[in-house]
């Protein structure tokens, strides 16, 4: 093929740049991980030293395990995140399709309306949301969180997905129409697979704030049975004394599930693009 694209020098430069940035990205994470296995004294005496026989300590992990049912918290976080993402993606894609595919009166206005939500932080509506959840008896259920996160994620999803949907070829959709497919079938069978990369992006976008949110779990679902992982970890952050061992351990453990979700979505993204069923 082409010279420039396989030039070994270029390849080294590319790897060099990527390795450099990877180091920058991972260094603080590395600091967190090694310190989560050290005693408090060792953390602050030599924050960069690897845990050795003397400084190695699982005290943080032990505290975390003792203080609450962290597997339940994991499970709650996972349910909330996955369910909210599923709803955001489904409803968001449907709305984005309606906006990008059809011309109807109020289309632009509707687009703007659906984008309003990214312009005001939802937290200031907390009291009204909480009142609504109290009235509907959803307080201390995971549904309260799922609904809020779905609402919170939709504007961004619609915003991004409608941009991507505009790039889906009209010929393809029209071919579908000629074949007598319903609009629903066209959407689900032809369009959705094509925007899978964008869907994966939206999923990744929304996953992080949901997973890491402390505010709404604290207000809407603080009960023991519905605690999320982030909420469970905050008991170690005290008014005066913060148990950094426990915080580091709890949050180190919290990295893994999101990372797995990310890998799943990003693989989805790549597969969607490279398999390129219809292009």
């Amino acid at each position: 093929m082409n010279k420039a694209r396989s030039n070994p020098l270029n390849t080294y430069a590319m790897h060099g740049a990527l390795i450099l940035y990877t180091l920058i990205a991972l260094f603080p994470v590395f600091v967190i991980l090694i310190n989560s296995f050290k005693s408090r004294k060792a953390i602050f005496r030599e924050p960069l030293a690897l845990p050795d026989a003397e400084s190695f300590s699982m005290i943080g992990y032990q505290t975390v395990m003792k203080q609450g049912d962290f597997f339940l918290y994991f499970q709650n976080s996972l349910i909330v995140t996955v369910a909210s993402l599923a709803l955001v993606l489904l409803f968001g894609a449907m709305a984005a399709y309606a906006l990008s595919e059809y011309r109807f009166r109020g289309n632009t206005l509707m687009g703007l309306y659906l984008a309003l939500g990214i312009m005001i932080p939802i937290r200031i509506g907390t009291v009204a949301i909480l009142e609504m959840m109290v009235a509907s008896g959803l307080v201390n259920t995971l549904w309260a969180l799922i609904l809020v996160y779905t609402a919170q994620g939709l504007p961004l999803a619609v915003f991004i997905l409608s941009e991507f949907m505009k790039q889906v070829s009209d010929d393809l959709k029209n071919a579908g129409r000629i074949d007598g497919l319903s609009e629903y079938t066209i959407f689900f069978r032809l369009v959705l697979p094509l925007v899978r990369p964008a869907m994966a992006t939206v999923a990744v976008f929304n996953m992080i704030p949901i997973w890491n949110d402390l505010w709404f779990p604290l207000i809407l679902a603080p009960a023991e049975e519905t605690k999320t992982l982030t909420l469970g970890s905050q008991v170690f952050i005290g008014q005066f004394v913060t148990d950094w061992n426990a915080v580091l351990s709890a949050l180190s453990m919290a990295i893994l599930p999101v990372l797995i979700l990310y890998v799943i979505f990003s693989r989805q993204l790549i597969r969607g693009i490279t398999s390129g069923a219809v292009k």
């Binding site: 409803f91 939500g117 939802i122 509506g125 907390t126 779905t150 939709l154 504007p155």
Partner: peptide, 9 residues
């Protein structure tokens, strides 16, 4: 969902 849980509050 968006109107009820986000815009209204």
């Amino acid at each position: 969902i968006y109107t009820a849980v986000m815009i209204f509050p």
